[in-house]
């Protein structure tokens, strides 16, 4: 296919001329160059090299090398001095910002952790204190209760002993009266049965009987 096309081109160089000339002429007119000279050059160039594969045409090398050097040097300068530092600074700025944000987040998290730890410590201390207070109060109440109870018990004990003493006295008194009652009863009984009896003999008999 390549060959066929190449042959076609070789067969019809006139058409090529027209196109190239037309373009060159138009450009020339705008730039006010000596038109005749250019036409001659272009025609000769075209006619002389039309059978050369364009990428291998050495006649175009100087122009391509020159303009490649100019454009690539311009690109390199623009990129290295202007464009790339800008993009790089944007990326670095963002990276710095993100790092700073992460550091800030870390710092706040540490702060939060510290606050939580402090809170927990305070809570534990408060709990301990509360327990301490409760224990103290309990102890105080217990001791108070114990003293009170002791006092009450002592009181009760004294009352019991005094009551017992009173009972014993009453008992003793009652016991002493028993003899008299018995003597009187016996005198009455004897009087009824025997007749008059002296109180003293009865009393002696009762004492004798109660001693048996």
């Amino acid at each position: 296919m390549v060959t066929q096309a190449y042959a076609q081109e070789a067969v019809t160089p006139a058409e090529e001329h027209v196109t190239v000339d037309g373009t060159t002429g138009a450009v020339d007119a705008t730039h006010a160059d000596p038109t005749a000279d250019t036409h001659a050059t272009t025609e000769a160039h075209d006619g002389g090299h039309s059978d050369v594969f364009p990428p291998f045409d050495p006649a175009t090398f100087p122009s391509q090398l020159l303009w490649l050097a100019i454009s690539f040097a311009a690109l390199y300068l623009l990129m290295s001095k202007l464009a790339l530092p800008r993009v790089g600074s944007i990326l670095e700025e963002r990276k710095a910002r993100i790092d700073a944000d992460i550091a800030a987040a870390d710092a706040s998290r540490q702060k939060t952790d510290a606050a939580i730890a402090a809170y927990e410590a305070a809570l534990a201390a408060a709990k301990a204190k509360a327990q301490g207070i409760a224990a103290e109060t309990g102890d105080a109440i217990k001791t108070e209760l114990a003293t009170k109870r002791k006092a009450v018990e002592a009181d009760l004990a004294s009352k019991v002993t005094s009551a017992e003493a009173r009972i014993a006295a009453t008992k003793a008194a009652a016991m002493s009266h028993v003899d008299e009652i018995a003597a009187e009863t016996a005198q009455t009984v004897v009087t009824q049965l025997v007749g008059d009896v002296s109180a003293d003999s009865v009393r002696a008999a009762v004492a004798k009987a109660s001693k048996e």
């Binding site: 390549v2 190449y6 190239v20 373009t23 160039h45 364009p54 990428p55």
Partner: peptide, 24 residues
């Protein structure tokens, strides 16, 4: 339809240095 034609280099602003003024 010529597949080679797309590679043809055409002068747009002619700049020629050196040479004896003759074509090419």
């Amino acid at each position: 339809t010529d597949p080679i034609h797309q590679f043809v280099i055409e002068d747009m602003i002619p700049i020629h240095l050196g040479g004896d003024g003759t074509a090419g």
